[in-house]
Design a protein around this nucleic acid. Sequence first.
RNA 1: GGGCCCAUGGUCUAGUGGCUAUGACGUCACCUCGACACGGUGGAAGUCGUGAGUUCGAUCCUCACUGGGCCCACCA
Length: 840
Amino acid sequence: MQLPKQYNPKESEPKWQRFWEKEKIYKFNPKSKAEVYSIDTPPPTVSGKMHLGHAFSYSQQDFVVRFQRMLGKNIFYPFGTDNNGLATERLIEKTKKISAKKMDRKEFVEICLDTLKKELVPEYVSDMKNLAISCDWDIFYTTIDSHCQKISQRSFIDLYKNNRVYKKKTPIMICPLCSTAIAQVEMEDVQKSSTLNYIKARLDSGEYLIYATTRPELIPGCVGMSINKDGTYVKAKKDDEIWIISKEALEKFKDEWSLTFKEELKGKDLVGQTVTIPLTKAKKQVTHDQESKTEYGTGIVYYCTYGGAECVEWMQRHKGIKPIHIMGIDGKYNSFAGKYQGMDSLEARKQVLIDLEEDNSLVKKEQISHVVNVHERCGTDIEYVATEQWFIKYLDLREQFLKDGAKLNWYPKHMKQRLDNWIKGLKWDWCISRQRFFGVPFPVWYCKKCNEVILPKEEDLPVDPLKDKPKIKECPKCKSNEFIPEKDILDTWATSSLTPRLAIELMPENIQKKLYPMSLRPQAHDIITFWLFNTLVKSQLHYNVNPWEDVMISGHALDPKGKKMSKSKGNVVEPQKVIEQYSADCLRFWAAGSKLGDDLPYMEKDLITGKKFITKLWNASKFAIMHLEDYKGQKPKKIEVIDRWILSKLNHIIKESTQSFTKYEYSRTKAEVENFFWHEFCDNYLEIIKDRLYNPDQRGKEQRLSAQYGLYHTLLAILKMMAPIMPNITEEIYQLYWSKHEDPKSIHISLWPKQEKSEEKAEKIGNLAVYAIQKARQAKSEQNLSLKSPLKNLIIKGKISKEDFELAKQDIISATKTGHIEYEKLKEDSKIDEEVKIEL
RNA sequence: GGGCCCAUGGUCUAGUGGCUAUGACGUCACCUCGACACGGUGGAAGUCGUGAGUUCGAUCCUCACUGGGCCCACCA
């Protein structure tokens, strides 16, 4: 058979993609009795094209899925996209140049759905297919479709009925500029310079507390003054006034403020006193708070509604305190802010500082630099405002979640710590409501009269309360017939935490039982605390069971210098271009180069190595197929010792790579097979058997058949073991020859090579032969001779018997081109195991 | 501040309580050997981050430190 001289991935890869699709190679078979292996595929957020990080982690999960498929399992490998969140909303606003705020929600949602369906999702899926991801593309969901909306809403109703959700007025983060609630993930840390203001507040005793704040403008919202009861404070004389600050603060400001020390006191002596806040003249209690530190500022802090997360927490610790809501969701101060009404924080700050100065209450302004949370989109400082929000109650279950997390099989193990860490640090219940436009609506109406919550029946889901009316005629409580729809939408995580159900419920009910809990959740480490945890929570709350058995956590793709890739840095590598230039197999080869969980810098040299590997595989296969043309799969009566040697070595590789792959250590499998193929198989084995293959007249027909046998089985096993990593080139070679002799119509549904017994004796003989051949090569190389130049004499000493040596003798002669060969058996107790002498 | 990971020839990386520490890229010399010059053979290159401990013996185990990365919290 005449094979093309070169392998052309540009032709080959699309050809096999079409083949796999047409032949339904990756199709889940609901009727099969084989063991099911189900994957909770991460639904990527479709905000543009597939990026390198996706290519990296989806390749890694695809390696293990392909391996499991080759173990003969029935693979349930769905694909979904996550489109219900903010990312999509923003992308559509940007690309379509529209504003959700300024238009009808219905209309906006229509545009989003349409763009997703026609443009974003198809392009993304096509990228995934080009990468040879082996999902069953017919099992497809997108988190905004009605199937997903239904499941998401059902989840909410279920939790509501089990008293696991509640609604509460509580502070949330808002962006005053965008006039909307935002989530933690939408925040960014920025180092900003700011002013720490020292302000004087009069105690009823006539003495003054000096407190420090970067948010003086919140003075109308002040709810309390706090100190640390265990801290040491001092009274100091300032002109004719007595100032109270912490001992540390006195050290700092003694000279600057011309203070004279008067007496020391404990923080607890201050607790319970009443203090008058300047400007507003409001009277507040001095209380203890564990977070008040004597070393910061003056050791005295005022708390407002709301200066930041710490104020929110303070309010929670001090139950009796009533918040004073001075700000609306637009960030503007309301009537509770008195003369500052209508201003935003920046304007108010200026005015308050002027007023404080006039009031003679401003002691000092200090320039500081601190970290501020800003909205990543517009850079505006985050504000906290109290609004009505829906929560899932789960803080009481933390202990249980820790135990559930421990029951998962973690790959790699240490990633579990991140989940534990997160669960232990949980302080809030899970806020699932968002004041946004594009997403899954809450399936809730309220009775206009008595505010009773009205829920739809499950069979009526999904509903959009803004469009749909409740099916019931009147409120079951007060008989009123007027209802108000809930306008909020569910947070994206409330839906994506249901991905196992979203996928499984695409199957008939009798199949669903086989699929849950799922076998594997593959994902990257950055969202363990969100996606992994949330999915665990929902599964436990709904079904009392973990959603999966194994979790496989992959790392990140980094730029060549080991830095994060980001558009703003301009160091982004586009996987589409890499595939175009090198092929999907090369990209996957690179992705297989990192240990599971490790980050991996993108290095062009690794792509080149992959390309060379493909070429080598192609050339070696070309050679093999050429010599296997007349081979009919028969087993020779006697297998030559060198052939038994390679088969025995192969067995070790099969054993190790199977073990590695079972533990999700695809990088080891790749490295082991790569090394075995290149150095053992090509460099040694192929060179040794060439003579037998080319010259059966001299070496014997049976001896040639033995070489063919070794060649056939070893290369086939190598191809199979590389197939999960490089599905295209291995399929190409398989189809050129092996598919005509083996049953499965694709290498990807062929069975993973089985480990057979190793032959220790054959290995010893073969190893000695290879050692002798290497010595001969070395001798020739040192003399700058060609490797085909003949040797005069080759004397080999070793511990194998003379008879055993005879078995490999002819192969050694032909591989070294020696004119004469001698063998001497070393004594068992000899210090050296082998020795080779060469005469050129 | 809490937690986790990493540190091995110029670069990236494998690995193990003990034999000359893996491989790739690069580099140097040679070789057109009937698959492959995107190749082959051979060579040079590493005190396995620093310090201490456990041990007969540590690159591997323990502790501390230094540097890099990640996650979480974050200071009025």
